Amino acid sequence: MLKPEFKAAFNPAFTPCAVIPVYNHEHAVGAVVAAVLAHQLPCVLVDDASSDECAAVLDALAAAMPAQVIVLRHAVNQGKGGAVLTGMRHAAAAGYTHALQIDADGQHCTDDIPRFLQQAASRPQALITGCPQYDESVPPLRFYARYLTHVWVWINTLSLDIKDSMCGFRVYPLPPLMALMQRKELGRRMDFDTEVLVRLHWDGMQIVNLPTRVGYPSDGVSHFRAVLDNVLISRMHTVLFFGMLWRAPSLLARKIFGRRSVR
């Protein structure tokens, strides 16, 4: 169920839920779920092989609100991307048309959920993604390191259409995401958020960038692995670069003639 003030703006065929990947965020996830439910979005929580303590928190949330919260569970940790993909598959199979992805650590501004949903409802074929506005809690190294990925994304799309590819606060239209997942094995860890945006952009999807406040993080837990995740991200940029090269004529034709898909 959606808040009455949203319904008039939403396409009747627009049926969103929230997908929240969770890995040992037991101290923050309850507040995130409460904030999402306040906007009357059903929640799909994906427990990516968390600790027993975190699993107990998730089970309690689902038990307290069985009509609004479901917990999916990985026996083995698959990474953030793997958890998001599991949640998206479930959401699509359950009949939802769109899924709002939000992190479990409390870094995203849940007050912006209505803005994201309103944009997604008015542009149901577009992907709505957050463009972070950081406060003083952001680690300076991570803030400036993001710009390396920004530059690679601009190169690999031959555009500035994606302002920030690493923000995990976004709304996906599920049918095109499912189609991409069926034909391409996507990165399953911290490389996922960037790769999926670039590949959906290649497919012709419109990307809508919404400014949103971001903090780091409310529970003090980060699962970014400095060496391994940077290796995965570097490999991803390399693969995408070579994918861009043979798509370059179509990408340039899109800019000139407005043709969308360049699979």
Rank of each mutant, 00 (worst) to 15 (best):
residue 169 F to W: 04
residue 130 G to I: 07
residue 164 D to A: 15
residue 202 W to Y: 06
residue 137 S to E: 08
residue 163 K to W: 15
residue 86 T to V: 08
residue 105 D to Q: 05
residue 87 G to I: 02
residue 89 R to S: 14
residue 157 T to D: 08
residue 165 S to N: 03
residue 250 S to Y: 02
residue 33 V to N: 06
residue 191 D to S: 09
residue 167 C to Q: 05
residue 160 L to M: 14
residue 149 T to I: 15
residue 77 N to H: 10
residue 152 W to H: 13
residue 176 P to L: 13
residue 33 V to H: 05
residue 242 F to R: 06
residue 147 Y to M: 05
residue 210 L to G: 00
residue 137 S to H: 11
residue 100 L to E: 04
residue 9 A to F: 02
residue 81 G to K: 01
residue 116 F to S: 00
residue 87 G to V: 05
residue 181 M to T: 02
residue 195 E to M: 01
residue 57 V to K: 10
residue 236 M to G: 00
residue 9 A to C: 03
residue 18 A to Q: 03
residue 98 H to W: 10
residue 251 L to T: 02
residue 52 D to W: 02
residue 69 V to Q: 12
residue 24 N to Q: 10
residue 225 R to L: 12
residue 54 C to P: 14
residue 82 G to Y: 02
residue 56 A to S: 13
residue 22 V to C: 09
residue 260 R to L: 06
residue 236 M to I: 03
residue 215 G to Q: 15
residue 173 P to N: 10
residue 191 D to F: 10
residue 169 F to D: 01
residue 84 V to T: 07
residue 158 L to T: 07
residue 153 V to E: 07
residue 59 D to W: 07
residue 88 M to V: 15
residue 64 A to I: 04
residue 115 R to S: 02
residue 134 Y to M: 04
residue 217 P to R: 10
residue 229 D to H: 04
residue 132 P to V: 14
residue 124 P to R: 06
residue 157 T to C: 14
residue 76 V to Y: 08
residue 166 M to R: 13
residue 46 V to G: 10
residue 255 K to A: 06
residue 242 F to N: 03
residue 39 H to N: 09
residue 96 Y to S: 00
residue 92 A to E: 15
residue 90 H to W: 13
residue 195 E to K: 00
residue 56 A to Q: 13
residue 155 I to Q: 09
residue 106 G to E: 04
residue 43 C to H: 07
residue 258 G to N: 06
residue 69 V to D: 13
residue 234 S to F: 08
residue 195 E to S: 00
residue 32 V to N: 00
residue 149 T to M: 13
residue 48 D to N: 11
residue 205 M to V: 08
residue 3 K to R: 12
residue 64 A to E: 11
residue 140 P to D: 12
residue 48 D to S: 05
residue 137 S to D: 07
residue 126 A to M: 01
residue 175 P to M: 04
residue 154 W to Y: 12
residue 179 A to P: 03
residue 119 Q to C: 06
residue 213 R to M: 10
residue 263 R to T: 07
residue 58 L to F: 01
residue 40 Q to A: 11
residue 200 L to H: 04
residue 211 P to V: 05
residue 30 G to N: 07
residue 26 E to A: 04
residue 127 L to R: 07
residue 99 A to C: 02
residue 118 Q to L: 12
residue 42 P to D: 15
residue 231 V to S: 01
residue 220 G to M: 10
residue 44 V to I: 09
residue 186 L to R: 04
residue 2 L to M: 11
residue 197 L to C: 01
residue 254 R to Y: 00
residue 216 Y to V: 07
residue 68 Q to H: 12
residue 93 A to C: 11
residue 168 G to K: 03
residue 156 N to S: 03
residue 6 F to P: 02
residue 167 C to T: 06
residue 87 G to C: 05
residue 199 R to T: 00
residue 110 T to V: 08
residue 143 F to Q: 14
residue 118 Q to T: 13
residue 140 P to V: 08
residue 63 A to I: 06
residue 193 D to C: 03
residue 47 D to W: 02
residue 259 R to I: 13
residue 98 H to C: 00
residue 163 K to H: 15
residue 36 V to F: 04
residue 242 F to L: 06
residue 252 L to I: 13
residue 64 A to K: 14
residue 106 G to L: 04
residue 48 D to V: 03
residue 27 H to Y: 12
residue 38 A to E: 11
residue 176 P to I: 12
